[in-house]
Design a protein around this nucleic acid. Sequence first.
DNA 1: CTTCGACGACGAGAATATTCATAAATAGAT
DNA 2: ATCTATTTATGAATATTCTCGTCGTCGAAG
Lengths: 224, 224
Amino acid sequence: MNILVVEDFKELANEVIDYLSKNGYVCKWANSCSKALEEINSNDFDVLLLDLGLPDGSGFDVLKMVRKTQSKMAVIIITARGELDDRINGLQLGADDYLTKPFALTELGARLYAIIRRIHGFTVNDLNIHGFNLQLQDYKVSYNKIPINLTKKEFDIFQYLALNKNRVITRLQLTEHIWGDILEVNSDSNFIDVHVRNLRKKLDKHTSLEWFETVRNVGYRINV
Amino acid sequence: MNILVVEDFKELANEVIDYLSKNGYVCKWANSCSKALEEINSNDFDVLLLDLGLPDGSGFDVLKMVRKTQSKMAVIIITARGELDDRINGLQLGADDYLTKPFALTELGARLYAIIRRIHGFTVNDLNIHGFNLQLQDYKVSYNKIPINLTKKEFDIFQYLALNKNRVITRLQLTEHIWGDILEVNSDSNFIDVHVRNLRKKLDKHTSLEWFETVRNVGYRINV
DNA sequence: CTTCGACGACGAGAATATTCATAAATAGAT
DNA sequence: ATCTATTTATGAATATTCTCGTCGTCGAAG
């Protein structure tokens, strides 16, 4: 699930992106209208998180543009209290929801979940890639209905690489995302490699894995 | 390290408390001036996180009262942008720092860390309880200089109970705090009990553990 | 084309975490 | 005081995670 976060206040953006990433969303950041439009034109996002007060104009301009072209993208408007006046009340401009600052991250999470479910139907929690089916909610994987027994770490790695398909994911990114607090983990260790190895060994039984690349000096990538 | 969070906006308070708890702070919440003063009079806090716009008055009244009596308590003021006018600029009223909403939780964490270090000197990362010394930063425990080999989970449990000494901590609290996402964990399991048991077995070798109570139907508590 | 060094793959084993079955302890009811 | 139901403690088995040593492979330099 890809999300574009349009917000000029960097700390807030970081906080939001960090939270969403940890919940399995793949995020990009834009800090202005122009950057946002640029991103939207070059990538496919499922959700747009849109702050209204941007340095080079109102987020509404972005929203209008989006609604002209990409109708399936969900838009959540973020606004300071009071900034949302009557004129635009009722979400007539085509936003799916809105949040007033300051908001709790869990609140954002709940809105997102609801919207995604509304748009994509009830089962968004499945991830299908190269014949494998990942049920994100209960950590189950199968290939052609044949269940595969992955450990939690193996599942986490598979899920994260799959969510970020076609992008190289570094070992550091995996560590930060899956293990969280980076300080607890010994960095000059090959535990990621070992988990990847074990994951591959299990997947390999079912099909060829040439799409599961090792990118030397960088990390791992799942191509689709 | 005990913190009182004075903030009437419940979602924000929850978010902050959740974050701080996960970083080893022990938090209480007050949503009004009167509740805050009540808490301050009955408990000892190291830091006061104080929102200014409260339903029954300004947080400044709380601050003034605090400065009359409890001079060693650190105070961080939380305020909406613009709410902090010139009259009170420069922290003349005795606050140690302030943050404007919206703020990033990591920013709050950094300020807290700095303030606590300023007040308590450089080494706040040791916890001493009943003869045991916990070095929080590198997961080491010792009793009379004799090192004790605890696993990470055992250390986490010991630390959390010690930080919350004299309070009963439920299994759910331990699960949420140490394992994080509660959904991943099978709740009808006794894994907490097992970790507690193993922890006790290791501590027990060095001294009597009558202060490490099991509170039937509730959880565990370390008395001091 | 060969050599060298760095990086990743791999196997095996140690350490840790979790599950499970059963025993002991506790509190309430009889 | 005894019984009973529920909660916690315990030992042991199982599963998972992480560490370590070694080997293979890739790519750059000669």
